[in-house]
């Protein structure tokens, strides 16, 4: 029998606060104070869910001043990705069923070299860079996300678009076995999005394959997604399998589902309210006080000229 003699300074095991409890309390306090979740704590809690690091990522040469990226935990546990359910936490729960290898993207339509490209070739073929962007959801919340990706323009160039290509249409994978949310016809699957050609080749428009320096988690649109930072989040289509270069403006999922609420352009615009709510303010995830929403999500200097002369109330 082992008899332990306890020195006077030693605490009993029973006096140690249960780890779950103090973590819970820490989280509660961080919420109560309206602070972003304590980064060290969030890091510890989310290590288990982290994906592999991506090698050779060039740091963002021009990160947005004064913006601190949201944590891995926040970015990967609060997602709108109806292919895995309509709750914000559903994607993190159910996206594990998505297998992202093998994965090919078909590029077709008005181009000289239609064909397809595998995800491995994409990862090898384009130098990866970090882009720290604001993401503004049409629902009124926002995040700052350090994406890893490359300009969409680079990929399109490979397939040699012709002058007839005026728009680019994107499609998400349609496979209810891997995307259980597609068993229900909440939307007209597959999810479709589109950009005007000048928007598609804009240097801010990227295809992302990672975030926080790591492989893109399934719930964030693995293995390949679009990111258009000056538009509402629903334009940034996830898990892309098809890109078509087309002459006419392509139909897009949300603008088909509710044409008076979601337009083709969907540029972030505090002056054009959604029919059911104002777009003047947004809540940055992790903060309490709402902040004013900026025209074009703060990227007006870079993109406003694309819409010169257009009535943005009509083309919302």
């Amino acid at each position: 029998m082992l008899i332990r003699v306890r020195p006077g300074w030693a605490l009993r095991e029973s006096e140690v606060t249960d780890e779950g409890l103090w973590r819970a309390r820490r989280r509660f306090l961080s919420v109560a104070a309206g602070l972003a979740a304590a980064p060290a704590l969030a890091r510890a809690a989310s290590e288990a869910t982290m994906t592999a690091p991506l090698p050779d990522v060039r740091p963002d040469p021009a990160p947005p001043p004064g913006e601190r990226p949201n944590t891995w935990e926040q970015i990967t546990r609060y997602n709108n990705f109806y292919e895995f359910g309509t709750g914000k936490r559903d994607p993190a729960r159910y996206a594990g069923r998505l297998r992202t290898r093998p994965w090919t993207v078909v590029v077709e339509g008005e181009c000289e070299r239609p064909g397809e490209i595998g995800i491995e070739d994409i990862l090898r073929g384009f130098p990866l860079e970090e882009r720290i962007y604001r993401l503004r959801c049409v629902e009124g919340w926002s995040m700052v996300i350090p994406w890893v990706g490359f300009p969409l323009r680079r990929l399109l160039e490979r397939f040699r678009p012709t002058s007839a290509a005026r728009y680019v249409a994107f499609e998400t994978l349609h496979d209810p076995e891997r995307m259980p949310g597609q068993h229900r016809r909440i939307l007209d699957w597959p999810y479709r999005e589109g950009l005007r050609m000048d928007e598609a080749v804009h240097p801010l428009t990227i295809l992302a394959v990672g975030l926080h320096g790591r492989v893109l988690p399934n719930q964030n649109g693995a293995p390949l997604r679009l990111v258009v930072p000056w538009k509402y989040g629903f334009k940034s289509i996830k898990s892309i399998v098809r890109i078509r270069l087309v002459r006419e403006r392509p139909p897009t999922t949300w603008s088909q589902a509710a044409p008076h609420e979601y337009g083709f352009y969907a540029n972030v615009n505090p002056d054009v309210p959604h029919p059911r709510w104002s777009q003047r303010y947004e809540r940055r995830i992790g903060e309490l006080r709402r902040r004013p929403t900026l025209p074009f999500n703060g990227y007006a200097e870079a993109v406003a000229h694309l819409y010169a002369g257009m009535d943005l109330r009509r083309f919302f």
Partner: peptide
């Protein structure tokens, strides 16, 4: 749920 962080990251919503 608020206490344990189950509502994170947007407990208000």
């Amino acid at each position: 749920r608020t206490w344990t962080g189950a509502y994170e990251p947007d407990p208000i919503a």
